[in-house]
Amino acid sequence: MSSREKILAAVARNQPEAVALPDLNALKDAAQLAEPADLLEKYITVLTGIGGTAYQVGSYEDITGILNVQFPEGRIVNTVTELHPHHQSHVFEDDIHSLENVELAIIKAHFAVAENGAVWVTEELMGKRVLPFICQHLVVIVPANQVVATMHKAYEQISNRSYGYGAFIAGPSKTADIEQSLVLGAHGPRSMNVFLLG
């Protein structure tokens, strides 16, 4: 008997009588009752609290203006076509290791989550999966009207969409492994800048 059969047989033999899944609606209702009135404000507060920076902007021109001041130097990899012509959108080479010297990566996100400061990004928005991690600084553009309250709402939004790879990203890469001292920029971006557009 293969290990597969052995394990499945042992599990089937030892698992208790079937228990039904709970209804998530009671929980979702309770979470909804506790939602803040202003999701955008909540998002900005939480993102700032976890070491990120939020910008409320009206147009892509506004974003370009801020980026030119904040990130005047270094290699920029932009995946957002609307930022033309100021930031050329990037044509990726096959060797993703060549991204190691990227100073700033600019990507879009599908939506943001107010309760934890995260944005939801899938592979096609990243260009390459490694991009939002390997860059020194990360810029994420998300429509200001796409802020959901909780992770319950987030997964309702994602629904059964298919993706090869997706990530919630909440703030800059961080660690507190040395005596619980918080340090931003562990392996990934040293800063996360979220532009809430519109």
Binding site: I50, N116, M151, G166, I169, S173, A176
Partner: peptide, 17 residues
Amino acid sequence: ATGQPITTYSSHYSKPR
């Protein structure tokens, strides 16, 4: 775990590159 609202990265692996 740590009192954070979520980890910085919650990565969903569905298909290989």
